[in-house]
Simulated assay, not measured.
Amino acid sequence: MPTAFDNSFFSRKFLVGDSYHSAAVSPTARSGLLCSIQFYGRLFLGPVRWLCAKAAKGECTDAAWVYASTRVADLMEQAGCPLFIDGMDAIEAVEGPCVFVANHMSTLETFLLPGIIRPRRQVTFVVKKSLTTMPFFGAVMRSRRPITVTRTNPREDLADVLNGGNSLLQEGISLIVFPQSTRSRIFDEHHFNSIGIKLARKAGVPVVPIALKTDAWGKGKYVKELGPIRPGMPVRFQFGQPMPITGNGKEEHAAICHFIRSHLQRWEQEDGVNGEA
């Protein structure tokens, strides 16, 4: 399977250079509630159903994964949420694999990052094990060969990530790591562990920081993955330059935290705060 872009293989949506900025978008529904209903209807009857059907047949290829990801991006734009993705040249700034380290704000980044990164390099996630056993979508996650963690035994999780992640990196497959314990609009460095740094150090690969603001897809009250869609709220991703790990990695970890924190602060000044804690 090719590791670089092939016109016949992947969607071109995010293969536009260093940045992708949505054209002017407007919501397809005026009210937030109606917008959310329309969005989830189109999501589950469209790319999610299509990709799950592919996975059930053992046909969830990288091309299918990327196609579904970019369709979700289209649906966010149709909902009136513009996308601003910058620094994508960093994805290809190193020849070999790397570890992408990002904050974790909503369900949206797990849908969008494959369409942004995979056309440029092979990649998978470090995810909760429960995501690989859930009905329908679990087959999709298993097809991606993710590294799974339980989040009940930190020592075992660390060993699984270091050993399994190192094996994938040696195969040339990059990893996306969300070091936060849970999704949150608030970036708390005390809950942002250094597991991505430890993995990159063990494998001898660089880390690429990602700051993201995806609260246009909110957290649900009863089902946290299915929160309100906020028309007019921008979706933002900023990739930083690769960082080789030197010494114990503390300086690199601090630099990643600063990178994420500074971008979130600037974006909140530009976009406003929606009031969700």
Rank of each mutant, 00 (worst) to 15 (best):
I37R: 12
R183W: 08
H190N: 15
T124C: 14
F9Y: 15
L45M: 12
L34R: 11
P97S: 05
A63P: 01
E77Y: 01
K224H: 11
G96L: 01
T214P: 04
P114L: 10
E268K: 06
H190M: 07
V99A: 06
M105K: 07
Q241C: 02
Y222N: 06
E251L: 02
L226C: 02
F84N: 15
A4E: 12
E59T: 02
H191V: 13
F5R: 05
R266Y: 07
F111Y: 13
S36A: 10
A200Q: 08
F237P: 04
V25P: 00
N193P: 01
S262T: 15
G247A: 00
V161R: 01
E59F: 00
A55T: 03
K128P: 09
M141W: 12
S69H: 04
F237R: 08
T152R: 14
R118V: 15
W267P: 14
Y67S: 15
S184P: 07
D271F: 10
V127P: 00
L75M: 02
I176L: 08
G247N: 00
F125P: 04
R236M: 03
S130G: 03
M141F: 14
A139H: 11
I85E: 13
L162M: 06
V66L: 04
V235H: 08
W65I: 13
L264I: 14
T152L: 06
P179T: 11
L43Y: 12
C257S: 04
V101T: 06
N103D: 04
S36G: 15
R42Y: 02
G172C: 11
E270H: 03
A56W: 10
L15S: 14
P242Y: 06
T132E: 07
M1S: 13
P154W: 05
T133V: 08
L15V: 13
I37K: 10
R12S: 14
R266N: 12
S130F: 00
M76Y: 10
T152P: 01
R42H: 09
D18I: 09
A23I: 07
A255N: 04
G240W: 07
R155Q: 11
K129P: 00
P119K: 08
R236T: 03
L34A: 14
Y40Q: 09
E189D: 13
G172F: 09
Q122E: 05
P179H: 06
L162Q: 03
G249R: 01
L113D: 04
A55P: 01
T132W: 02
P242Q: 07
F192V: 08
V207I: 15
D215H: 13
V72R: 02
V205L: 09
L226T: 04
A216V: 10
T133P: 00
I173W: 02
A139P: 00
K128F: 13
A139N: 07
F9G: 01
G96Y: 01
H104T: 07
D6H: 08
E251C: 01
L158H: 01
H190E: 15
T182P: 00
Q238E: 11
G240V: 05
V72Q: 03
F9V: 15
